[in-house]
């Protein structure tokens, strides 16, 4: 599904240069569930953002579905992104002014899906994450776990081929965390590729493979049974 070779990302501020990714190479196959781990500041989020086409790299190659996209401009990347990728963030990032239903509906609106199909898809996915009864509530009226389930619903509503999750359980207690991991596993079993950043060994065990980073490099890979 995606193949990254010798990727470099350097952040430059006024006085210092931070090498966030240092000739990093990585391949993820279709249908895989990959966990990325490593100490704070080792470049996990940076990698995920580049994979999610929110950010671009300095050097290296990034093949997505057999296509080199490293030189794509903003518009083409945005287009590719909204068709193929769903995001789940640690801090949920729901829009406070919109209800649960409206939040989940948003990606479909931007894809130009018609109203009837939207309704059907949103309801199906809300059903799946079990917050259908809260559809007309605003995010602040929900618990953290419910908010993250809503965020997951939003990430998958347009049936993306790839889900990127950056510490999806970081703000949740273990019960709520497990529910979210359960959801991600189900989605993966249904054929979606999942890449997840996590600090938790427990959560990482839900994945097929764990990639460990240090100072912007892959230092170890564990294949899980």
């Amino acid at each position: 599904m995606l193949k990254i070779t010798d990727l470099e990302k350097i952040y430059r501020t006024e006085d210092i240069e931070t090498v966030a990714l240092n000739k990093l190479s990585l391949e993820v196959k279709k249908g895989e569930f990959v966990a990325i781990m490593g100490p704070s500041g080792c470049g996990k989020s940076t990698l995920l953002n580049i994979i999610g086409m929110l950010d671009d790299a300095e050097k290296g190659s990034f093949m997505f579905n057999g296509e080199e996209i490293i030189h794509f401009n903003e518009r083409r990347r945005a287009d590719l992104r909204k068709r193929n990728i769903g995001f789940v963030f640690q801090s949920f990032n729901l829009i406070d002014e919109l209800t649960v239903y409206e939040n989940v509906e948003l990606p479909l609106l931007y894809l130009g899906v018609d109203a009837a199909e939207r309704k059907q898809k949103v309801e199906a996915v809300l059903e799946k994450v079990q917050i259908m009864h809260r559809r007309n509530h605003f995010p602040q009226q929900l618990s953290g776990g419910q908010q993250q389930r809503c965020a997951v619903a939003r990430a998958v509503v347009n049936t993306p081929k790839l889900i990127l999750a950056d510490e999806p359980t970081g703000n949740l207690d273990s019960t709520n965390g497990n529910e979210v991991m359960q959801l991600l596993t189900e989605l993966n079993e249904a054929g979606t590729t999942v890449i997840m950043v996590t600090h938790s060994e427990h959560d990482a065990r839900f994945a097929h493979r764990i990639i460990r980073l240090l100072d912007g490099k892959v230092v170890m890979e564990n294949i899980l049974g």
Binding site: L54, R81, K82, N93, I95, E97, L106, L111
Partner: peptide, 13 residues
Amino acid sequence: TKEIGVRKVLGAS
């Protein structure tokens, strides 16, 4: 700002 960022990630032009 945050809302705009989220919307962009979700595909808003």
